[in-house]
Every structure is written in structure tokens, then in C-alpha cells.
């Protein structure tokens, strides 16, 4: 588990690279960015979400982002909403996320949990951090928690040595890019466009500018998410970002009526295509 090394701190900016950051640094040395694949726990069932995550790792995902199903996912578009709604209807509990984290960590891949804040608040931020660390998790991505409101999470993630991935957006001011970069550990999540999760045909030039601005503001690693669904898009983003985050497109392979084995095949195929994209991005092509 070379990814799970300790925390390193770059003295001049205050930005720190946790366990995900160490993996991103390794991949950078190899001349490529990471493929970060998202799936919600409990869709279609907890067991099957574990199988799906394993499939993604085998097909080339470098980091797994595990979503905690939540009743009010305001940063998610229809695809992820449908999956998390089904997961909740199926009786998925917040604590189920630790089973999936543990399964992913056993494969030697950083497991980040993507969660809205209230489930963590209800669980208790320190208790959640403790149980996440115990399961081998790398940290949290928090779409509705900005560093300004995150005192409890900053303390808990320090106490349990966890990554904390905050988001930046095209609308973020230079001051906020700097503050968010300083508060983040692992990487900074750059939202490629203004909007919610979901597939988009074009990404525009905003993502590259945002990554550059976030690096200028002190971030060591910046990964890009929102709207990426094809190998070509992954290659485009992988050229300038430390990681390419894909969610809705992967989730969609599990949303149709096909038998699960067939869905896994589609998931594997798309993951491989995205992984190829990321790997070819800086090969001088």
C-alpha cells in the first residue's frame, strides 16, 4: 500500500499532501494523472456496490470516491440522484460506507468518501473520522462544506490523519482559492463548470484556467470533476490536471435494466476507456 504513506507538507504554501496526495505524486512522477471513479454505496445493493468498486479498480481506476447516499443532494444531477434515492430506498445506512471503504483500501487504492455534511454532523465528525480511518479510508470530499464552516472537520481530520478535499469553482475569488487550497489535504477538487454533477458534451476552457489559478493559489494537487464522461474528455483534462474525476457516466452504466453482470461489463469497459484517456494524455500525442 504505497499510497497510504504519511503526510508531507510543502513549507512555502502551507498546502499538505495526505495519503491521496502521495498517490497523486507517484502518478505525476510516472507522467500521468489519476482516474478518480465515483460510486454511491448501496447502489444497487451494498454487496454489489463493493463488486462495482472492485471492477473499477481492476479496470484502471486509481482512486475510488465513495458517495454516501443522502436525501437532499443539491450538488448532484439526475443520474446520481436516481442512484442514491434507490440506495436509500434499499435501506442503505451511513455506516455501510465503511464496508466499501475497507474493501477498496484492501485493494491498495485510496478510498475517499464523498458526503454532504449533515450525515457526518449527525454521526459526530470525530466519530466519523475515527471509523473512517479505522476502515482504511483516505479522507472526505465535502461538496456542501466550505472551509469557513469546517472547524469541527479540520480538527477531526487532523486528529485521525485524514485527507480533506474541499471544492473550488470557476466563481471562486483568488482569496478563496488560496484559503481553500491551504485548508485542503490530498487535493483540491476543481469543479470544471458552474453546475451540478452530470455528463456534458463540451467542457470549455474554464477547467484549465481554474486548475492553473488554484495551483497559483498554493495547491499542490488539483483534480477536475463535473461533466467528464468519455476517454477523449479524460485525455483532455488529464493533460493539465492531477486527476480526472468521473461520476455520473460510471453510475449510468449501472442504472439500466440489464442484468448486473452485463452492467459490470459496461462499467469495466467505460473505466478502461477513461483510464486509457488519462494514460495517453501526456504521452506527447
Amino acid at each position: 500500500m504505497s499510497g497510504a504513506t504519511g503526510t508531507t507538507r510543502t513549507a512555502d504554501t502551507g498546502f499538505t499532501a495526505g495519503r491521496t496526495g502521495a498517490r497523486l505524486a507517484e502518478l505525476r512522477a510516472e507522467g500521468r494523472g489519476a482516474l478518480v471513479g465515483y460510486l454511491p454505496v448501496g447502489y444497487p445493493t451494498v454487496e454489489r456496490s463493493i463488486e462495482a468498486a472492485r471492477t473499477m479498480v481492476e479496470a484502471g481506476a486509481d482512486v475510488i470516491e465513495i458517495g454516501v447516499p443522502y436525501t437532499d443532494p443539491v450538488m448532484d444531477g439526475p443520474t446520481v440522484q436516481r442512484a442514491v434515492e434507490a440506495a436509500l430506498e434499499g435501506g442503505t445506512r451511513v455506516r455501510d460506507v465503511f464496508r466499501l471503504v475497507s474493501a477498496v483500501a484492501d485493494l491498495g487504492v485510496p478510498a475517499l468518501v464523498m458526503t454532504y455534511w449533515n450525515p457526518v454532523l449527525r454521526y459526530g465528525p470525530d466519530a466519523f473520522a475515527r471509523d473512517l480511518a479505522q476502515a482504511g479510508g483516505a479522507g472526505l470530499i465535502t461538496p456542501d462544506l466550505i472551509p469557513d464552516e469546517a472547524d469541527a472537520w479540520l480538527a477531526a481530520s487532523d486528529a485521525h490523519d485524514l485527507d480533506r478535499v474541499f471544492l473550488v469553482a470557476p466563481s471562486s475569488t483568488p482569496e478563496r482559492l488560496a484559503a481553500t487550497s491551504a485548508a485542503s489535504r490530498g487535493f483540491v477538487y476543481a469543479a470544471s463548470t458552474m453546475g451540478v454533477t452530470g455528463e456534458r458534451t463540451t467542457l470549455g476552457g474554464g477547467a484549465e484556467r481554474l486548475v492553473a489559478a488554484t495551483r497559483d493559489a498554493g495547491a499542490e494537487h488539483v483534480c477536475v470533476g463535473l461533466g467528464i464522461s468519455t476517454g477523449a474528455q479524460a485525455a483532455e483534462v488529464g493533460r493539465f490536471a492531477d486527476g480526472v474525476i468521473v461520476g455520473s457516466a460510471l453510475v449510468r452504466t449501472l442504472l439500466d435494466d440489464a442484468p448486473f453482470a452485463q452492467q459490470l461489463e459496461a462499467l469495466s469497459g467505460l473505466t478502461a476507456q477513461l483510464a486509457d484517456g488519462v494514460r495517453s494524455a501526456r504521452s506527447g500525442a
Binding site: 456542501d144 466550505i146 469553482a169 470557476p170 466563481s171 471562486s172 475569488t173
Partner: peptide
């Protein structure tokens, strides 16, 4: 109170 919203809305 507070502002528990996505960063994208903070500027607005």
C-alpha cells in the same frame, strides 16, 4: 445559521 452551500455559490 452559517453558509453550508457549495463553494460555487459563495461569490454570489
Amino acid at each position: 445559521g452559517g453558509r453550508f452551500v457549495p463553494e460555487a455559490l459563495i461569490a454570489a
